[in-house]
Nucleic acid binder design. Sequence first.
DNA 1: AAGCATTTGTGCCTTCGTGCACAAAGTTGA
DNA 2: TCAACTTTGTGCACGAAGGCACAAATGCTT
Lengths: 238, 238
Amino acid sequence: MPLSRQLSSSRIRDDGRGIPDATVARLPIYHRVLRSLADDAVHTISSDHLAQRCGVSPAKLRKDLSHLGSYGTRGVGYEVDFLSYHISRELGLSQPWGVVIVGVGNLGHALVSYKGFASRGFEIVGLLDSHPDVVGEKVCAGETDLVVQPMAELEKVVSSSNASIAVIATPADAAQKVCDRLVAAGVRSILNFAPTVLSVPVGVEVRKVDLAVELQILAFHEQRRVDDLTPLAQVMQA
Amino acid sequence: MPLSRQLSSSRIRDDGRGIPDATVARLPIYHRVLRSLADDAVHTISSDHLAQRCGVSPAKLRKDLSHLGSYGTRGVGYEVDFLSYHISRELGLSQPWGVVIVGVGNLGHALVSYKGFASRGFEIVGLLDSHPDVVGEKVCAGETDLVVQPMAELEKVVSSSNASIAVIATPADAAQKVCDRLVAAGVRSILNFAPTVLSVPVGVEVRKVDLAVELQILAFHEQRRVDDLTPLAQVMQA
DNA sequence: AAGCATTTGTGCCTTCGTGCACAAAGTTGA
DNA sequence: TCAACTTTGTGCACGAAGGCACAAATGCTT
């Protein structure tokens, strides 16, 4: 029996959820812009206009949205609230997600105070840190306050809060151990801010955000730009 | 004469210039792992082993490195220091880059205290904020202390420090104005943490890091996983 | 010196992502 | 009602990216 195909991320029916990864990565942008438009009392918007606000090409936007279904009206455009609802539904924002943050340094504090979580269905249900000075600190997270728990409580916090997403904001040398404990506790989705490569078993998804990597990519293009200013060297060598 | 191709000459710039974006995005990872290996006194490493540490496939690693030139030895592997040097050179890490950070909230503080900048040639040369309580604050950045400047000093700070990269860590509603002023002051590379789409003229590169977007992508896959647990319902309804 | 073991570098093929262009579908106005 | 206009949804073609497999090149051993 070909069971292996079930594990593949590719779906056969386009009617279902065969949404390309590149599209999924852009849906949150579309959703955010649509919410902003709704706040400005905009009812309908064309793909050209919406695409410009999202920083993508109109054709790409239309193809992305076509993967969700035909939610536009030809000759008119898309109804903002209607499209926003369907995107949020597809992204799973209609149900709440519990998030545990491990590591409450400057970055952890920034994450807790970030306003964009609660409005998109994410609720911070646990804060963990190993440093004695931080443990016990009361942190204002949205409407409710949270107390930073010691690292020993990790398994208990994850299981009791039924958190499904974890954020690692620890130093690099602690990240892998934290990751292993999170996975053992049942977490299958991890957002990693520590500058290290995490190894996880299959079935666990890790996304990484690396500040230094982003800067180095910028530096590469910046240097290439500088090199292009000296085309004489190339002519001389030829 | 067939000038189009010259083999075995890694110094030909035409070959080194066309590095795919996907490769450039992985080079910082390779570099970081190589530096770590060097600290552990590892002299040579094979592509299989290095690939495993970097979380990529060996074939991909070799193809990535082949874009830089032939820096490996068949039958042996890659010399750690040698390869590390060539990657850092290609990324432009051999020369220092001045970085200005706009917005010194929790996230800004986290960026300033991040250790990975100085070791990769990035030096924070300016801190800017609009809030009176933050302006004037002395922040410890690596070896030297920096004082947060008021936003009015933006143009002066950028031009006097000759910064080429800027980081926007402000709230979303201030980001576009800050971006415009940075571009007008001569900045051509911007790392944007604000959850908004920035519009810039051609020739300016913007990379964005959006925390909520990353969480929403995780939530999408998490939801898909939950939906896959109930395939019977779909079959029954069909 | 010669053969064996090991590892790199790369050609080929498949898959994924993007842009173009246009038919289909809906609205507006007379 | 019908024609002109607007906008969506999509087929197609092209380029980028990834994986496989193997020839070329190097070290080691006899």
